[in-house]
């Protein structure tokens, strides 16, 4: 029996976290759910305890990169075979979970990305987001010669190799794109599967115009310099 851990990074998600935990349980009954509470100032932690999910709590807000890495460290230390990442804001549909982990369980690949854009295109995007996605798709293609339609998706699953890599090294802010290139550099394989995503149920989008620019510049810089870093 494979041990599966669903990691939910959460920062002030009191409006959505209960529903996320319940629907993950409904979609994948035998899994453990770990919420990594990244210094929320609202009732997120209390709700997670009420629901009886596993919880790790950062004493202050450390950002999504460190939050996911805390989850990977837990998965590594506790011997999980598969780790799944799903957002705490409810935008990822847990019904896609079984198909998200299927390639991992069958040992076909090391990392699976749930893509909003592979399927019937039911997800409406702003122009800026489309441009950003296209930019990152090309960037990843340059470095890995693989086409990823939804490179910033935080709906992912990975095997033990992926867990070990990311527990050891995970980018700090806006980690998704860099993580893929890092995985490729360390010889891990990844693939996409179509998933449906809802527009966020609560909270506001974490990416405004300036942040989007910073996102692209930061990731490009860090990837380009990382290219000269070699493997440790």
């Amino acid at each position: 029996m494979m041990k599966i851990l669903v990691i939910v990074p959460a920062y002030n998600e009191e409006r959505t976290i209960r529903e996320v935990i319940r629907s993950v349980r409904a979609a994948l009954p035998p899994t453990d759910i770990l919420v990594v509470n990244d210094g929320s100032t609202d009732a997120t932690g209390a709700i997670v305890r009420e629901e009886g999910a596993l919880i790790l709590e950062h004493p202050y807000n450390m950002g999504i990169g460190a939050t996911m890495q805390t989850g990977f460290l837990y998965a590594l230390k506790n011997g999980y075979h598969v780790a799944v990442q799903i957002d705490g804001d409810g935008q990822h549909n847990p019904e896609s979970l079984p198909s998200l982990i299927e390639p991992i369980i069958k040992g076909k690949t090391n990392l699976v990305i749930g893509s909003r854009y592979l399927s019937d295109g039911g997800f409406k995007s702003t122009l800026l987001r489309k441009l950003g996605i296209k930019f990152f798709t090309n960037l990843i293609w340059i470095f890995t010669s693989q086409r990823v339609t939804d490179p910033t998706s935080g709906f992912r699953s990975m095997d033990r190799k992926g867990i070990a890599l990311f527990a050891d090294e995970y980018p700090s802010d806006y980690p998704e794109v860099e993580a893929l290139i890092l995985a490729h550099k360390r010889g891990l394989r990844f693939q996409e599967i179509p998933t449906r995503m809802r527009h966020r149920q609560g909270g506001v989008t974490s990416i405004g115009f300036l942040s989007a620019i910073y996102y692209m510049v930061k990731v490009t810089l860090s990837i380009s310099i990382g290219f000269f870093r070699g493997s440790r």
Binding site: L54, L56, E57, H58, P59, Y60, A66, T70, L73, Y74
Partner: peptide, 13 residues
């Protein structure tokens, strides 16, 4: 600081 905090968080659990 990040590494230290993560360690503390895991130990606390």
């Amino acid at each position: 600081n990040k590494v230290l905090t993560q360690k503390v968080v895991l130990l606390e659990k």
